[in-house]
């Protein structure tokens, strides 16, 4: 075999090229293309023309978009905090060695695995606001009046956050369970001998020891929440009155919803989302030192 060919085949490139090719085609090209689109007035079926920053001026002048930024911020804080807190609780509960532990773990993972649209349809049926809606029928057993889960703006905001916590908690549980397993048994046994309480062990040993995993969970949960739209699309479509409109949903509605087909404007929203996500990605990359050992 030719020496150069042999060197190529026996080197790293046969492994790198497929991944590099896929990254360029699937990631880099669409990202660059999206930035270009955001500076055009392209619509589906109409190539449009270059409009500079007009789309960005339009979205930052739109009350719907600004409203979606404010709810997205609230949504991110409560969804990520809720998913991580509940995920940690579940990970701690499932830490013990008892019968059926794996079955429970699988059950808690199911919401994370199912499609966002299916989750939305399922919760929409549970949130039916008459007395026969599943949740209202349940609370009715305790003599409570039906609740306006989705038609009251405040309740709708809370309901959407609840659903997303339910959906993402399995992922946090999985990551944090892995983190708990990395804590050396000797440390916990020493703490037991010293008479440390369960709380003390949690806050002084377990959480500090899995700081890296907690941070990764935070970053991943934030990015996932920022890009969420399918479930809320089905649940409320951003309503009532824009109360539950997320940035990603606003992008979808502009680019594809209701035959609007404003691809250029939708791409501009996507570029803004990309910039915000990039901040979290950079934090993640720096934190993990791009694959190098951190300690």
């Amino acid at each position: 075999m030719d020496t150069r060919l042999h060197r190529f085949v026996s080197g790293p490139w046969p492994f790198i090229i497929p991944a590099l090719f896929a990254l360029i085609v699937m990631r880099a090209f669409p990202a660059v293309w999206q930035i270009w689109l955001s500076m055009t007035d392209m619509r589906l079926g109409d190539p449009g023309s270059f409009v500079g920053l007009a789309n960005f001026r339009a979205i930052f002048g739109s009350s719907a978009f600004l409203g979606s930024i404010s709810y997205t911020a609230i949504f991110l804080v409560f969804t990520v905090a809720g998913q991580m807190a509940l995920g940690l609780c579940l990970a701690l509960i499932l830490e013990g060695d008892y019968r059926g532990r794996d079955i429970y773990r699988t059950l808690f993972l199911i919401p994370w695995v199912i499609s966002g649209l299916v989750a939305g349809i399922m919760w929409q049926l549970m949130f039916v606001e008459t007395r026969t809606g599943l949740l209202n029928a349940f609370i009715g057993q305790f003599g409570m009046n039906p609740i306006r889960w989705l038609s009251n703006p405040t309740n709708a905001r809370v309901s959407v956050i609840m659903v997303y916590i339910w959906k993402g908690v399995g992922f946090s549980m999985l990551l944090l369970s892995g983190g708990l397993k990395t804590i050396p048994d000797e440390l916990l046994e020493s703490a037991d001998i010293d008479g440390a309480s369960a709380w003390r062990k949690l806050f002084s040993i377990k959480i500090p020891m899995m700081k890296e995993i907690v941070s990764v969970n935070f970053i991943f949960a934030t990015i996932a929440a920022l890009n969420s739209y399918e479930t809320v699309l089905v649940l409320t479509n951003g309503g009532p009155g824009g109360a539950t409109s997320l940035i990603a949903l606003e992008m979808f509605r502009t680019a594809f919803g209701e035959s609007r087909n404003q691809l250029g404007r939708g791409s501009a929203i996507g570029v803004v989302m990309f910039a915000v996500t990039l901040v979290f990605v950079i934090i993640y990359v720096r934190m993990t030192r791009f694959g190098k050992e951190n300690y």
Binding site: Q124, L125, V128, E129, R148, S151, N152
Partner: peptide, 16 residues
């Protein structure tokens, strides 16, 4: 009219 109509699609009448 049910208050849920403030967010519902037309198909939301089906469960009712």
């Amino acid at each position: 009219i049910p208050e849920s109509t403030a967010v519902s699609r037309e198909a939301a009448v089906v469960p009712l």
